[in-house]
C-alpha cells in the first residue's frame, strides 16, 4: 500500500466506457424460464458450463433486481402480457435476449397459440438461434450482447441518456 501511495498513477478513460464496463461485467439475468430453452439456460448456469465465469451467474428471482431478461422458450398468447409485465418491472438499464427459435420467430409452431416472435411484445437486443441453443450458443449470445453494450452509448431502453 505504501508503494502505491508513494507513486500515484492514474487511468484515463471516458465515462461512457467506464459505465459500460461496469454494466457488462455485472449483468444479472432474471430467472425467467418458459420451455425447453429454460432447461438449457439452467444448464448454462450450472456446474458444467459455469456462467459465473462471465459474472452472470446471479439469476435473480425478482425482475426488479435483474438487468437482463433471457426469454428462454416459446411465448404463448396467454403468457405475452405476463412477459411484458415482468419486463416493465425491471429497472433501467435493461436488455432482452431472445433465446431459441420459438422466442425469436415462433419457431416451428406457426399457429394460433404462440406469439410469433417475442419482439412483438418487448424490444429485443440479441437473438440466439437454435432449438434449443446449447450452452455454448447462449454464452456466445451473452458475450455478443456484452460487446454490444461496451460499444454502445449510455442510454436506457427508451433511448434517453
Amino acid at each position: 500500500m505504501a508503494g502505491v501511495a508513494a507513486e500515484p498513477g492514474f487511468l484515463m478513460t471516458t465515462l461512457e466506457k467506464g459505465v459500460n464496463w461496469a454494466r457488462t461485467q455485472s449483468m444479472w439475468p432474471a430467472s425467467f424460464g418458459l420451455a425447453c430453452c429454460a432447461i438449457e439456460m439452467m444448464g448454462t448456469g450450472a456446474a458444467h458450463n459455469d456462467l459465473a465465469r462471465f459474472g452472470m451467474e446471479v439469476f435473480r428471482a425478482s425482475p426488479r433486481q435483474a438487468d437482463l431478461m433471457i426469454v428462454a422458450g416459446r411465448v404463448s398468447q396467454k403468457m405475452a402480457p405476463v412477459l411484458r409485465q415482468v419486463y416493465d418491472q425491471m429497472a433501467e438499464p435493461k436488455w432482452v435476449l431472445s433465446m431459441g427459435a420459438c422466442a425469436s420467430s415462433g419457431g416451428m409452431f406457426n399457429n394460433y397459440a404462440l406469439v410469433q416472435g417475442v419482439d412483438q411484445v418487448v424490444p429485443v437486443d440479441m437473438y440466439v438461434p437454435g432449438c434449443p441453443p446449447g450452452p455454448q450458443s447462449l454464452i456466445h449470445g451473452i458475450l455478443s450482447l456484452q460487446q454490444l453494450i461496451m460499444d454502445g452509448e449510455i442510454r436506457n431502453s427508451t433511448g434517453v441518456v
Binding site: S105, N110, N111, Y112, A113, Q116
Partner: peptide, 14 residues
C-alpha cells in the same frame, strides 16, 4: 381451436 373448421392460425412468415 381444435375444431376442424378452425384454422391453424398460422401467419405469413415475415
Amino acid at each position: 381451436p381444435l375444431r376442424k373448421d378452425s384454422s391453424v392460425g398460422a401467419i405469413p412468415v415475415q
